[in-house]
Write a protein that binds this DNA or RNA. Sequence first.
DNA 1: CAGTGGTCTAGACCACTAG
DNA 2: TAGTGGTCTAGACCACTGA
Lengths: 262, 262
Amino acid sequence: MASSFARTEIDKPGPAEGGTAPSFSPLYQQIKGLLLGSLQAAEWKPGEMIPSEIELAGRFKVSQGTVRKAIDELAQENHLVRRQGKGTFVATHAEQRTQYRFLRLMPDDGGDGRLQRRLLECRRMRAPAEIARALDLKAGEAAVQVRRLLLSAGAEPVQPVVLDEIWLAGPLFKGLTADKLAGWRGPMYGLFETEFGVRMIRAEEKIRAVTASADEAALLAVAPGSALLLVERLSFTYGDQPVELRRGLYHTGRFHYRNALN
Amino acid sequence: MASSFARTEIDKPGPAEGGTAPSFSPLYQQIKGLLLGSLQAAEWKPGEMIPSEIELAGRFKVSQGTVRKAIDELAQENHLVRRQGKGTFVATHAEQRTQYRFLRLMPDDGGDGRLQRRLLECRRMRAPAEIARALDLKAGEAAVQVRRLLLSAGAEPVQPVVLDEIWLAGPLFKGLTADKLAGWRGPMYGLFETEFGVRMIRAEEKIRAVTASADEAALLAVAPGSALLLVERLSFTYGDQPVELRRGLYHTGRFHYRNALN
DNA sequence: CAGTGGTCTAGACCACTAG
DNA sequence: TAGTGGTCTAGACCACTGA
């Protein structure tokens, strides 16, 4: 089948109407878009296997190589996970070795850096203006506030490391209670996935240095006025929809925030 | 040409000798290794065009698609830059729009965030033990210490934002002087490339929060005891050889460190 | 063993750049 | 118009998994 023919089978936009619009989208990008649509529509759920490359190629009337390139990019972007000999699976936060998908905190020594959680608070309220703006909520809509501590659980004396204040878009997290949170084993993002059908896709962090207030110092067992890392994370689900705003205060005495630049 | 035949043309290791060694390396990975070797040996210099895919395919006796996959990965890792219709080029820090390749500092408002430099010091000395360890220097080898300020050059009043202390592996940077540094326009990594043939490939950063000492506070025009971001960056050239250790103190009053998580 | 993803090939055609 | 990278195909074979 000629490629130009195959393209007309799927191509949506047609020729450019004016201006400097791109007016050209490779087939594999269109396939990628369709697959993303199926993921967003939860046609295949996190952890499930998607159809084989050959079947998808037949479904879309393209060659296996084209489907392959689309899947390659989706795997690169952590939407899918390829497993040779088994199949391609929807990525999930639930069955993951790394407890904290987005947490870049590492112990200064080479320790394992495991952390234990202590839930401080979980309540539902009208979203404050600033939170509503960040999470694209309408005026008066609800938000869920979670506050918690992460404590080092290595060999050393257990001590607080992170004080998190988490804001979740209320409409998506109906029925989230302190009990549900406290009873959940595994990553919090796993709970969001399986209980609320909200999968975190990507996040942006803004990092600043601040001094600890009296309250914060007490919770983190440091002196008031100590320097802390303030990590503000905005997490997005499909369609670049912001669903979580997290403000973490990191005590970087025995830990540091690690980042790789390429 | 059968793939199994083509492979024997290049394959180095041969069958496994024992243990659980991988004992299999795809052709395109081997090609990638060869290309990386040529880059490290400066067979093609930063900014130059490398041979076309077709020519490389002929040289290595593989198909264009195989070369393509190797180049794809090298482009992804920022070793090469593809330009449709023109060719594939060795990546360079010299001719770059982004002045600071690895600097993640962004203005809180949407400003342009341009920074101006003020060189404080540049001297050559025996590497302190800690620096020697980080840069893999032998005892007694030299290091170059550079100290400088970065100041916001936007609309606001010009004010210090970053205090950098940079340590460079002495043997690689013979002849680096304050004059050369001060007279250079463009990214510092561009100078390293063109004058010393050292190209930074990747870096690792460790971020902590600290309080400003009296000296640091004076230079950054903040109150002593203010919270600052301490960003410790270790940069590597080819072969994972560490060549630069940089300690930056960031004043995050009007700026923040931005990070994207995928 | 069948089914999956992973590699490789050979060739066609398209999009972009520059002389 | 020639040369480059970018897309797409069709088919072969390899490596891995699990029944």
